[in-house]
Amino acid sequence: MGMNRTGIQMSPLDSKAMQELEPSVMSSDGMDEIALAELRSDYIANADALGSVPLPGTLTGAVTVGMSMLKGESPQILLDKLGERLAFERTGTRLYDALITKCEVMLGGDISMTIEDLEQIRADEARHFHLVADAIASLGGDPTSQTPSADLVGVESMGLVQVLNDPRTSIAQSLHAIVTAELSDKAGWETLVALADEHGLADMVDSFTQALNEEREHLALTQTWYEEAIGLTYGDVELDDMASTQELPD
C-alpha cells in the first residue's frame, strides 16, 4: 500500500464536478470516433505489407525452395515462422539475462528458483536460437534476414523487454513477464513442429519436438516460481495429474 493517487476516489469533489458536466460537453455524438475510424480505415487500405520473406541468396537455396514450391508446398511460410522463432529465442535469451541480473540483487529465500536454474534456461534459449538458425540455413534461407513474423514478434516482445529491464519491477512482476514469454514460446514451437511435419522434415520434427518439450518444462518452472513469488502456497502442480483429470473433447 502506498500513496497511489491515480483513482477517481482520491479527489471526490473534482470527480463529482466532472460527472455533473453537461452531456453536450462530455459527448460529441460519436463524430470523433467515426472520424478516427475512417482515418484508420484509409491507412489500413493503403498500407504496405509487414515486410516479405526474402528470396534465397544462394543457388542451392533457390533450388531447394523452388523444388518445394513445385511440389505444392509453402516453404515461404515455414521460413517466415522459422524467422519468427529465431527472433523470439534471441529475445528470450536477453530476457533471462535481465532476470539473472535482477535476481543477483533482489532474489530472496521465499522462491525455490535459483540463479543456476535461470542460467540453465538461458542456455536452452541460446541453444534453441542456434538450432533455428541452422534449420533456416539447411533450407537455403538466410538466418540474418528479418521475416514479417520476426518483425511482428519483435514489436510484441518490446513490452516484455521493458518490464525486465525496468529497475523498479519486482521479481514477481518480472516473472509475470517471463511466463507470458514462455506461453508464447511454447505455442510458437508447436506451430514449427506442425509445419516441419507437413513438409516431411523428419529431422526437424525430432529436434523441434525436443525444444518444445524443454519449453514446456520452462513454462512449468516459471509458473511455479511466479506463484511462489506472489505468495500462493498450494505447492507445485503436477502437469501429468492435471492432464489426467481433464476430460477429452468428443
Rank of each mutant, 00 (worst) to 15 (best):
G2W: 03
R5M: 15
T6Y: 12
Q9L: 14
S11R: 09
P12W: 10
P12H: 05
P12T: 08
L13M: 08
L21R: 03
S24E: 11
S27K: 00
S27Q: 00
S28E: 13
S28A: 01
G30W: 04
G30K: 02
E38A: 14
E38N: 12
I44T: 06
T58C: 04
L59G: 02
G61M: 06
A62G: 15
A62L: 11
M69P: 00
L70N: 02
G72Y: 04
P75V: 01
G83K: 03
F88G: 05
G92M: 07
L95C: 04
I100M: 01
K102C: 03
M106E: 11
L107F: 01
M113T: 03
M113I: 04
L118H: 06
E119Q: 13
I121R: 08
A123L: 09
H128G: 05
A133K: 01
I136A: 04
I136Q: 02
G140C: 07
D142R: 06
D142K: 07
P143G: 07
T144N: 14
P148M: 13
V155A: 13
E156Q: 11
M158T: 06
M158F: 09
Q162G: 14
L164Q: 11
N165H: 03
D166R: 01
P167T: 02
Q173H: 11
Q173I: 01
S174V: 03
A177D: 13
I178E: 08
T180Y: 15
A181H: 15
L183H: 13
L183G: 05
L183R: 08
D185L: 08
K186Y: 13
A187W: 09
A187S: 13
E190P: 05
V193A: 06
V193D: 09
A194C: 05
D197L: 07
A202F: 14
M204N: 06
M204V: 00
T209Q: 14
T209G: 10
T209V: 00
E217W: 06
E217D: 11
T224W: 12
T224R: 05
A229F: 08
D236H: 10
E238P: 03
D240A: 15
D240C: 09
M242C: 11
A243G: 09
